[in-house]
Amino acid sequence: MNPVTSADESPLSGVDLRALPKISLHDHLDGGVRPATIIELGEANGVDVPVSDPDGLADWFYTQCNAGSLVEYLKTFDLSIAVMQTEEGLVRIAREFVQDLAADGVIYGEVRWAPEQHLTRGLSLDAVVEAVQEGIELGIKDAAHAGSDIQIGQLVTAMRHADRGLEIAELAVRHRERGVVGFDIAGAEAGFPASKQRLAFDYLAAELFPVTVHAGEADGIESIRSALLDGRALRLGHGVRIAEDIFIERDDAESLYATLGPVAEWVRDRKIPLELSPQSNLQTGAIAAWGEELEDHPFDLLYQLDFAVTVNVDNRTMSDTSLTKELALLSEAFDYDLTDLETFQLNAAAATFQPLEIREALADRISEAFDEFLDDDED
């Protein structure tokens, strides 16, 4: 059994979190479209938008997404996806996405999205991937001109309820030398385990192509097990419900101990990264078994038990968030200090779908920057 201790009581104060280097692993392209861009592209493409001013539309998204259900949460994507059906729209949105990441202090990001959802105006699967890559490269140039050095990779996603997994997997591998770094499945989780996309995952394994799987968000341990066994997942998208396989006991001295079930032990011992998204997990009801406030999130329990936790936004627009905001909220909830935040970023750097040399270089950038902040704090 593993002792459960309290978090270090050293809250952050006076630290510019936005300036800290960050890694973004779980960030949906269609979940991070600027409200102003949705309005402009909606007018240009005949898409009805429920609110005509950016601030009002941002509030609409946030309100709609707080239903406590992943299914209801996902319905808001109908609007953002509707304005992402042309080459021009995809290029612009991908470009702005990278600009927003760079402005948030992100030095490496993996942007996930489902090409099969962007074909209603005649574009091919390959064309939409190329359009997004063009926007990414323009955004990287924009960031460089603004003094930011950022790297971006695409995670091509298949919708788990559709029957196109193998086709989308082949698409991802086709573009592995042109910006695509990994594969994902997303969408309504319950009833659609990774095993239903087994052909796709067999193909990806044969091609030695990295995989992350949405699992442990709207379904429990068996979904995570399927992601690991059938999907050969190197990371778990969200994965928060791995906490269902952790059992807390209190001994005679009133000390708390945690016993890990077999799936949790496998994930912990093999350092399979958890792509945790705190605010999104609240909005979708993923942590309803533990409570309704951020302080109830199992994030800290998983961190204390030495799981490879990472911090992510999931959907910036829907959750009205950023990595800076997520880190600030976690720090407030659990009294995390700079050393804790550095650990989260180093976990994420090690989890990127990049060669070892790049992962080590990212870790060095993070450590050097955090050391400077810590030195300044001591002064």
Rank of each mutant, 00 (worst) to 15 (best):
I185Q: 02
G191S: 11
R235F: 09
G220E: 05
F192D: 04
V240E: 12
A206T: 11
H214G: 05
D202T: 05
D184F: 02
P210E: 10
H238F: 06
E217P: 05
V213E: 00
S223Q: 14
E207Y: 08
E189R: 08
F209Q: 04
G220H: 06
L234P: 01
A243D: 06
I224W: 01
G239P: 07
A243H: 10
A205P: 03
G187W: 08
P210I: 07
R232Q: 13
G216D: 05
Y203I: 03
D230Y: 06
E244N: 09
R232K: 15
E217N: 10
D202H: 01
R225M: 08
A200W: 00
A227Q: 06
D245C: 12
A243C: 15
G182S: 11
F201T: 00
S223W: 04
L208F: 07
A215M: 03
I242D: 02
Q197E: 14
G191W: 12
G237W: 03
L228V: 14
A205R: 12
L228C: 13
I242P: 01
A190T: 15
A218C: 07
R241C: 10
A188S: 14
E222Y: 15
A188T: 15
I221Y: 05
I224F: 01
D219T: 15
G187V: 10
L228R: 03
R232H: 15
D219A: 15
G187I: 12
I185N: 00
K196V: 09
L208T: 14
